[in-house]
């Protein structure tokens, strides 16, 4: 005799009930936890921006952010101004750090829409840094980060992160040995044109002594993630270069 669980009607009924149960559990959890997750994400953005500025709890090797209970206060202290650049228009917006870069990139592609470009002015030890959020593609998924520079587009600090790069290889873009190499590199070439920073396999400069070659050392086994970082820096910072040229001329 055919078993009860082999019947088509039972199979369909089972599938429907299972999907309903699983779907409602997940929907309920996602909605219930969303406010908490959103707060965590906002704090993380503030931590990342401060990290690029050099405000962090790092010791010699580790990556350590300002703790979450202090970060909002420190953010207000160090980030003196948040700007949004849109075309020729520059305005002050205290929620600029919440602008969704992914959405801006997408809508800039499909219409004549002028992209909103957030820019944060941070002051640490009396030095002004301009911090810019960037976003691009790694090997498997999104990568993003924040680049802090002075008005000559010389990098003063970076922070990179990723959604799903290979652990032990591409995932190491958020480690100190990689990020610290960028400090002091110039985004402009010696003639003053925008050049970006390449992730080079033949740099032969592991501690990055040469700061004017527009190159840092690649991570072994993470070629595509590294290329993604270089492409992200090039395309995402280029759109800001006219702002910096104006800044220098004024």
């Amino acid at each position: 005799m055919e078993k009860r669980t082999d019947k088509n009607s039972y199979t369909i009924l089972f599938a429907i009930i299972m999907v309903l149960i699983v779907g409602s559990i997940l929907a309920f959890l996602a909605t219930a936890l969303k406010p908490k997750i959103d707060v965590n994400k906002q704090l993380e953005k503030q931590q990342n921006i401060l990290y690029a500025l050099g405000v962090n709890d790092n010791d010699e090797k580790s990556v350590a952010f300002i703790s979450t209970d202090k970060v909002a206060e420190e953010f207000n202290k160090y980030i003196v101004k948040q700007l949004v650049i849109q075309g020729k228009d520059v305005r002050v917006d205290n929620k600029a750090y919440l602008i969704d870069i992914k959405k801006e990139q997408a809508s800039a592609k499909i219409s004549s829409y002028e992209r909103q470009l957030p820019l944060f002015l941070g002051v640490k030890e009396n030095k002004v840094s301009y911090i810019v959020p960037i976003r691009g593609k790694g090997l498997w998924d999104a990568i993003w980060g924040y680049v802090a520079m002075d008005k000559n587009m010389t990098v003063t600090g970076v922070f990179f992160d990723h959604k799903g790069e290979t652990p032990g290889l591409g995932a190491n873009i958020n480690q100190r040995f990689f990020m610290d190499d960028f400090i002091g590199e110039n985004l402009l070439d010696p003639s003053g044109k925008f050049a970006g920073i390449d992730i080079s396999k033949s740099n032969a400069d592991p501690v990055n002594v040469d700061k004017i070659d527009n190159e840092v050392d690649a991570i072994a086994g993470a070629t595509i993630t590294g290329d993604g970082v270089a492409a992200m820096i090039r395309s995402e910072l280029k759109v800001y270069s006219s702002y910096f040229i104006n800044l220098k001329n004024n």
């Binding site: 082999d6 199979t11 599938a15 299972m18 699983v22 997940l26 959890l29 936890l33 908490k36 997750i37």
Partner: peptide
């Protein structure tokens, strides 16, 4: 579990478990 769709059911169970853990950790 109906034997015809058991692989899909297994996949749903794994995916649900992992997503629940991920959501709770994120919060």
């Amino acid at each position: 579990i109906p034997s015809k769709i058991r692989i899909i059911v297994q996949l749903i169970v794994v995916a649900t478990l992992v997503i629940i853990v991920d959501l709770v950790l994120k919060a």
